[in-house]
Nucleic acid binder design. Structure first.
Lengths: 331, 331
DNA sequence: ACGTTCTCTGATTACGTTCTCATACAGCTC
DNA sequence: GAGCTGTATGAGAACGTAATCAGAGAACGT
């Protein structure tokens, strides 16, 4: 089926010219006789020749026209939005995008990064996993520009783009306090992840701004499933914490919370991340939304800036969030 | 910042050996004195050497350990699921995954495919765009094995994995007829896409199986937005068509339909694709669900089979769908 | 008629790696 | 001690392309 691939030499022989001339035709250089060009093009079509980009990239100073994106999980809507923004931007810069998923495992991130550097990608868009190997990114950033997405490891001087987790959570919780809620529960996931800590801080600030005081009894962490979030919400509402509203740290948790409060319209609910069908719920739900595609796009733009040779100080982009009021049949 | 990369020659000079010996150490071959190995490893660490995989892949018979996935839109949950399945499988086979998005544009698909062949990817996972250029895939399949996902172009002998669009739609609509619905509307998107035609055929079959007869008045096509679907649903219900149930061709359309029927519990609704928050609606909604990750996985497995040299006849995998009953506060 | 510039093409080399071949020495066996 | 086998290393070629160098012929101006 897949026979030996024709090379420029094969094309040259068939066209009766030298390999150098074939190269000239393929690269559309000046000073080629029309008949020569035609003969070469005929030979290319006949053999089905495709220039070997590997050999081309081997030449000094050449680039692979490839950038890589390391994310946690391509199937998660957050990351798939980022992927789209990055892919779109890469294509606009005539680059291919290689996608790798870390699954939050450090070894996988490390192996992928090394492999990508070996493959001579022109740049790296990286979501670092939570780990304490401070040297990995610094070591590899010597060989390819790196831009961090969503999380920023300490001690590595590189550009980064992150969401305004703090501001978003603060705004949403402030919305609840403005409604007169006095005991607002917080249901979060893994507290070790960068984003969760910032969102919790935003929650705390909003609660304190409202003069309510931060009560640890109202905070439930380490809820990793929809079911866990549901149970945690029920516990906060019916237990001694006596919450009258709940802020959900992310979309999965929000789904659990919404299950828990179904039919209890007196309870206020707000959450981080968008949820499509919330529109149809009878209850109004303020949600902290943002543009993940833009996140990927901005990161990629920063990367291509570095690839193009920009040497200025590192940039930290804080992508704004927007509070939208969903639900309540209001559409 | 990114200085010249060290080569095996640099490592060899520093370690006081020949480049061939460095290569032997890097590839972990036999017959190397422990002291030699150590000296080379020291030099590698000191220089931060990373083998150039491009040069390696240039050698005859070598592969790039890279496969490509061409999808419509990485941000769409359907495609992001496929991406995850493909990435996961590629990694299990020690391959990198390059992702390209076609945006349903033929020129983009063509350019991406050509570029990928030039880059010598080991295989291609392709969602063909709707077009009539029959030769493109056949031409390129000469150089790299190809597996089609979700849609199958005519006339190209290659493996493919598609959803059971026909069976899924038929089952969902049969569910509605079994409830005693007599006038079931169909709201679809672009009728030119492969999947839509199959789903419409499944709808038709189910309607006819129930002895209801196919009535074109009940069929609305070319609804590309949530709002259009909503309007179309309202028109079918309140207009002369007098529908008493509606089948939505995809998830976006289903959202529109659900908006249209909010508060009208007598109307039946079913749809293709899953919708997370449907659980919370008071109305029960049968949905045709499937495993997109599995779709990507199966396609990638077929591809790696071909890469490994399998030469049997082409395989057509029809991935089953599953009707789930969501909503109705049943959970 | 002669030098100069422009057009066109080929020969050769370099890129970084791996592979083949060659070499050399150690420890065997007969 | 001659011949073998196993261990350890180096020299050099090859992969497919592009860049440099070189040269040949044509067109041009003086």
């Amino acid at each position: 089926m897949t026979s030996r691939r024709p090379t420029m030499r094969d094309v040259a022989v068939l066209a009766g010219v030298s390999p150098a001339t074939v190269s000239r035709v393929v690269n559309d250089e000046r000073y080629i006789r029309p008949e020569t060009r035609y003969a070469v093009e005929r030979a290319i079509t006949e053999l089905g020749f495709h220039r070997n980009e590997l050999a081309r990239g081997l030449r000094p100073g050449q680039t692979t026209e490839t950038v890589a994106l390391l994310i946690e999980d391509p199937a998660n809507p957050f990351w798939s939005g980022v992927t789209r923004g990055a892919e779109e931007t890469a294509r606009r810069h005539q680059h291919m995008l290689v996608v790798g998923s870390t699954g939050q495992r450090f070894e996988q991130e490390r192996d992928l990064l090394r492999d990508l550097v070996r493959r001579r990608v022109d740049g790296l868009l990286v979501t670092p996993t939570a780990h304490d190997h401070v040297d990995l990114h610094a070591e590899l950033a010597r060989w390819a520009p790196m831009v961090f997405i969503d999380r920023v490891p300490q001690g590595v001087p590189a550009d980064s783009v992150v969401l305004d987790n703090y501001g978003g959570a603060r705004e949403a919780v402030a919305h609840l306090t403005a409604q007169g809620r006095r005991r607002i529960g917080y249901i979060g996931g893994d507290p070790a992840v960068f984003t969760g800590a910032d969102r919790l801080a935003g929650y705390r600030r909003a609660v304190e701004d409202a003069g309510l005081g931060y009560d640890p009894v109202l905070v439930s962490l380490d809820n990793h499933t929809v079911e866990a979030a549901r149970a945690a919400a029920t516990a906060l509402l019916d237990g001694p914490a006596a919450a009258d509203a709940i802020f959900a740290d992310n979309n999965r948790i929000c789904v659990g919370v919404l299950h828990a409060v179904a039919g209890r319209d007196e309870v206020g609910v707000a959450g981080f991340d968008d949820l499509e069908l919330v529109d149809l719920l009878p209850r109004p739900v303020p949600l902290v939304t943002y543009d993940t595609v833009e996140l990927g796009r901005r990161a990629a733009e920063l990367l291509f800036g570095r690839i193009a040779g920009e040497t200025g100080p590192t940039t930290q982009v804080l992508l704004p969030t927007r509070l939208v009021l969903r639900g309540g049949r209001g559409r």
